[in-house]
Design a protein around this nucleic acid. Structure first.
Lengths: 217, 217, 217, 217
DNA sequence: TATGAATGAGAATTCATTCAT
DNA sequence: AATGAATGAATTCTCATTCAT
């Protein structure tokens, strides 16, 4: 008789594992599509299960509540953004250039490609419940904190100081807000993806100008 | 059957009129407080009626649905903002100064004083239903359009040009987004109203810097 | 000073009386139209009041409930039918002819001219509430009783007997039912008023044939 | 994800299936009893669920609205009537005899045994809503159409003609109406089921007499 | 693990009727 | 008498979550 080695999975076990993950992904994918197209509230667990070709029960094996699905989606999206933006930023020698490139990457590599994700991030995750609101707050703080890190890098490499101790936080916060509304304006509310490249260029210049104006003279 | 002459109300009629408006206001006030504190979804019509000290039926005499109450609140809030920001902007000779002052007025005269209103504006009105989403879009477009008007004034009085035809829209959009996140950061998510004055100063300088960097050289 | 004589109305009093009755009639008329077109349930007291150009309060001064309005309408309609049918029946020397003529009069003088009334009688008054159902029962019994009286007259003048003591009631009941369904078929469900004359002729011959077949041989 | 082979159910699956159908039947039965005894309007979904010993949610799994329950009941009842009447009619060689027997079967085998059903058919389904009214119209047309078919058979087998092209429709309509009012008179409004046998005999003779009187001479 | 029928709290909305003016 | 704003009980329907199989 075969013995199971701990930590090692039999072929059948591997297949089950694959299927399990496939199911989980299918649920997440279905939920994302539904949340973005019909709205979090309108997307019922039944619809999500149907769309994922899974029973409601299975959804509840994988996620303990509807809220949790959204929370998970938010985390996933935030992680992707932090990855793409962070990598782009770090890939440049010049932090100014990194700032610009990462902003453009966010707009054109992320927002433009995955409109559902920004709809979830900026619209469907807003004001849903105290729990999700706490989650959203944490997520945005992380994003802002990343941004603030980049701003600090800029400052250090540039060898200058900001007007106050608050400045880098203000800058990071402003940048976050700018990107959000630009995404609304060019993707969520209107489909002007063709203008997004130009818009992104101007946005990054705007923010560079903003940053410079908070330098200590 | 209709006896009243147009436009003339008896004393008793006047009092009834006052009471009617008082009730409507009470409903709006109760709804605002509840939406901000518990969330739109969680605030049931029964709670709103209770809080306003009227019956549910009376709520439905004044507003045909819960959605309508929120829409009304949104309009009211947007109107106040446009008024306070617009007046402050126009009160200054120098449009740069007007831009700064109106931004500061928005943060300190409005957001700081009426946190419930910005919670409604920025959180509770988001992603509620297709109808409300359309309403919100319209409202934000108006706000951006106002802002864009101010930016254009700046340009004309300053006698300069922007880099492209898109610039003023980009600027207005960015400014709108900045204010939103700053409000989240200092009011909704954290109560740092004591730092708001300083933060506002930096925000307006940031945006002035941003605007300048989009001038045509 | 003029003294009011009991039972005599001053000119002004007469006018008020006229107006009062006018209002009452307007309410009844509005209710009839609304009940027939939208259905009893769907016709709200507010709509009735509006349509009658009267306030809701006035409706309640004239009728103590919505049910009462319908009950009144039913009585009125039943009274009209009994009058028109009874008079036509009694106008003929020959009771067979009277039977036929009154049936035809009912279909062509009444149903065809006042479709709203038969809708109320045959559809909107059915199954509304125990109270109204009792009222409807009473009304139909009266109608059947009239019909039974006519059948008895037929029998007596014709000098024959029916098969059993039940026969005249059966006949009257059957006739009532026939007219109802014919009205549904040619007026309520389909507008085939152009065929109604011919249909009525056949219906009355059918019923005469039916009556004869219950004679004692 | 779907594992079951088409058409094959495990024992457990069969039991679940039985239980499911049992619940559906219980709901229908409870609704029928309640509609007949308290009236469609007065019978709330909560009462129906209680009476059927299921939750409200279960009622809504089986029927998408209260209207649908009534519509289903109407269909079921109409189907039973068409079956019993049709079979009885076709069982006789002589169509005259078939006509009589099927009428008597309707009255004594159906109406007498299931008074709730005729209450639903003739009272509770009337004038409830535009949707249900359309359903009722369709149902009655089918019933009349069956009857008309029988009348045509009578004509053909009897080798005679009717006075006009309208005659068979008129006859069928009249017969439908007669049965309805007789049912009201002897079952719904009064409990005179002991007289129903005799009454039915006379009714069928009445209608045979009526039919004969519309023959072309 | 997977299933999906069952649950039932919860919410929005309607409208006949009342009553202060 | 006339008005019509206010009332609030009543009702339908939704949907996240549970749990027996």
């Amino acid at each position: 008789m075969k013995k199971k080695k701990s930590g090692v999975l039999s072929r059948a076990g591997q297949r089950r594992q694959r299927e399990k993950e496939g199911r989980r992904d299918a649920i997440l994918k279905a939920a994302m599509a539904l949340f973005a197209s019909e709205g979090y509230r309108q997307a019922s667990m039944e619809r999500i299960a149907d769309e994922a070709e899974v029973s409601i029960g299975t959804v509840y094996i994988n996620f303990k509540s509807k809220e949790e699905i959204l929370a998970h989606l938010m985390d996933e999206i935030a992680y992707e953004i932090r990855t793409i933006v962070g990598e782009t930023f770090r890939a440049s020698e010049d932090p100014y250039e990194g700032m610009k490139k990462s902003g453009i990457a966010f707009m054109t590599e992320f927002c433009q490609k995955y409109p559902e994700k920004i709809i979830i991030l900026y619209r469907e995750s807003v004001g849903k419940s105290p729990l999700l609101e706490a989650h959203r707050e944490k997520m945005h703080k992380q994003l802002i904190s990343d941004l603030q890190g980049a701003v600090e890098t800029l400052k250090e490499k540039g060898g200058f100081c900001f007007r106050s101790g608050l400045s880098s936080e203000i800058i990071a916060t402003c940048i976050g807000g700018m990107y959000e509304r630009i995404a609304y304006q060019f993707i969520i509310w209107q489909d002007r993806t063709d203008e997004l490249d130009e818009a992104s260029e101007e946005v990054v210049d705007f923010l560079i100008g903003g940053i410079d104006s908070l330098r200590k003279k």
